[in-house]
Amino acid sequence: MEIAYVAVIILFCLGMYTIITKKNLIKIVIGITIVESSLILLLMLVGYKPGGTAPILDKRYEIVVDPITQALALTTIVIGGSVTAVMLAMVIKLHKRYRTLNIDEIRKLRG
C-alpha cells in the first residue's frame, strides 16, 4: 500500500517538473496528463480496501471498496480527456502558424 502512495508522489512531482521546465508544447501537455493520472491513482487508493470487491449491497460481500471515489475518478478522467483534447487542438493550430513547438521561439516570433 505505502509504495503506491510513494508512486503517486513521484508521478505528481515528475509531472509538475515537466510542466514547469520543458519548453516543448507537446511535453507540457504530457506533463499535465501525468499529473492528472497521478491524481486519479490517488483517488483509487483512497477508496481501496485490501480484499474488497465491487460495491454490491449483499450479505455475501462483506468488504467492499468505496464507490464514491470510483465515480469521482471517472469524472476526473472525462474532464482530463476533454482538457487534453482542447490543448492538443491548440498545439496543432500553433504549430501550423509558427512552424515550431518551442515556447521561446513562438514568443520571439510573436514580438
Binding site: 505528481f12 510542466i19 508544447l25 507540457i28 499535465i32 499529473v35 492528472e36 491524481l39 490517488l42 476526473t76 482538457v83 482542447v86 490543448m87 491548440m90 498545439v91 493550430k93 500553433l94 502558424r97 513562438i106 510573436r110
Partner: peptide
C-alpha cells in the same frame, strides 16, 4: 491562440491543486 493556451495551462495547473 497563444494567450489562450497559456490561460488553459495555468488554469489546469491550478485545478490540479484544488483537486488534490
Amino acid at each position: 491562440i497563444e494567450g489562450t493556451f497559456k490561460y488553459l495551462i495555468m488554469s489546469t495547473f491550478g485545478s490540479f491543486f484544488i483537486l488534490l
